[in-house]
């Protein structure tokens, strides 16, 4: 990458202090994203990918959560240390976010128009009338028919897909430099998913926005992202370009994720007995009780004694392709 990244996470650590103990939800995670680029963050539920992105905007509920170390640099500004006032100026304006559940992420008591325009009024100090005009424009941009009518509509009158478009309109109305999308299509139908992804792509081209796309769907990753970060149990286990990752995954967890994706070819090849989908055995370990060595060790078929005792370093396995694994996978 030629220029300086617009957002850079360095050794970010976020802990949750629970009754069972301290859960290291984000454990020394680093990644960066450039303007106009799409970075995908992949992993199972509970692997820390959402918490990482929420930490960027300091949206972790405190208590029980707390950012305990590392840094988040946005255009060189240290976000973990700026004042609450400055943080509010950045939220929704420079960095905005789209969430997983569009229906419950909107305020049911407020009209769509009010919900979009309040961010505009907050950040640009424009009049309510001007904000509503802009809100109507934004609804048209996200392909909502009858935008003028919907300004006065409520979320419960819309479908899930429409709600997510409203969320996108809300997130991009202030022309953010970074858009964090936290599983924005998970709750939607497949056909609506494709529309939403296309919409985000168009907007990115128009505004040169950096997108951090959080998902557990590798199919989506292949479609929209340029680079991928794979997370497991609060740590980064692999990072590379999309092309390299799909060609030659270097971490057994990534391999597991890939074989768990259903493929049409597999079912067509064997006429009599279609191959079964493979799964990764077990589940993500409890974060407050991680094994001493590699966190994936108990689910890994390549595990050795070294894996059990020592944490693997995150190292460059081939140019531009990092992974945290003692074994040489796929080379």
């Amino acid at each position: 990458m030629p220029d300086r990244p617009i957002l850079e996470l360095r050794d970010l650590q976020t802990n949750f202090y629970t009754r069972q103990g301290v859960a290291k939800a984000v454990d020394h995670v680093s990644y960066s994203v450039h303007a106009g680029e799409t970075l995908a963050v992949v992993g199972e539920s509970g692997c820390g990918k959402s918490v990482t992105s929420l930490s960027v905007l300091r949206l972790i509920p405190d208590p029980p959560g707390k950012i305990v170390g590392g840094s988040v640099l946005f255009e060189g500004e240290e976000l973990t240390e700026v004042s609450d006032q400055r943080m509010r100026e950045i939220r929704g304006n420079d960095i905005s976010m789209i969430f997983q559940e569009p229906m419950s992420s909107l305020n049911p008591m407020m009209t769509i128009g009010n919900q979009i325009s309040e961010a505009l009024i907050q950040h640009f100090g424009i009049s309510k009338k001007a904000a509503f005009q802009k809100a109507e424009e934004m609804l048209t941009v996200v392909h909502i028919p009858d935008a003028k009518k919907w300004l006065h509509g409520y979320p419960h009158e819309m479908s899930g897909g429409m709600c997510q478009r409203v969320m996108i309109a809300m997130a991009i109305c202030c022309n953010p430099k970074i858009l964090i999308a936290d599983e924005p299509t998970t709750a939607l139908d497949v056909t609506i998913q494709a529309q939403i992804l296309k919409l985000m792509e168009q907007l990115q081209q128009k505004l040169n926005t950096a997108i951090i796309f959080i998902t557990h769907d590798l199919g989506i990753v292949a479609e929209i992202a340029q680079r991928v970060v794979v997370m497991y149990a609060g740590r980064k286990v692999e990072e590379s370009t999309v092309r390299q990752l799909f060609a030659q995954p270097k971490h057994p967890y990534t391999v597991g994720l890939m074989t768990a994706v259903p493929r049409l070819e597999n079912f067509l090849e064997e006429e009599s007995a279609p191959s079964r989908l493979t799964e990764i055995p077990g589940a993500v370990p409890r974060l407050y009780n991680l094994p001493a060595g590699c966190a994936f060790v108990n689910r890994c078929s390549f595990a050795t004694d070294q894996c059990r005792q020592e944490k693997p370093p995150f190292e460059e396995k081939s140019p531009g392709h990092w992974a945290a694994c003692w074994q040489e996978i796929g080379s």
């Binding site: 949206l59 509010r88 939220r91 905005s96 976010m97 969430f99 909107l106 305020n107 309040e118 961010a119």
Partner: peptide
């Protein structure tokens, strides 16, 4: 504790 409060916070509201 609901998601809509998080959305409102993420918008940069006071």
């Amino acid at each position: 504790s609901q998601e809509m409060t998080r959305t409102a916070t993420a918008k940069g509201l006071s």
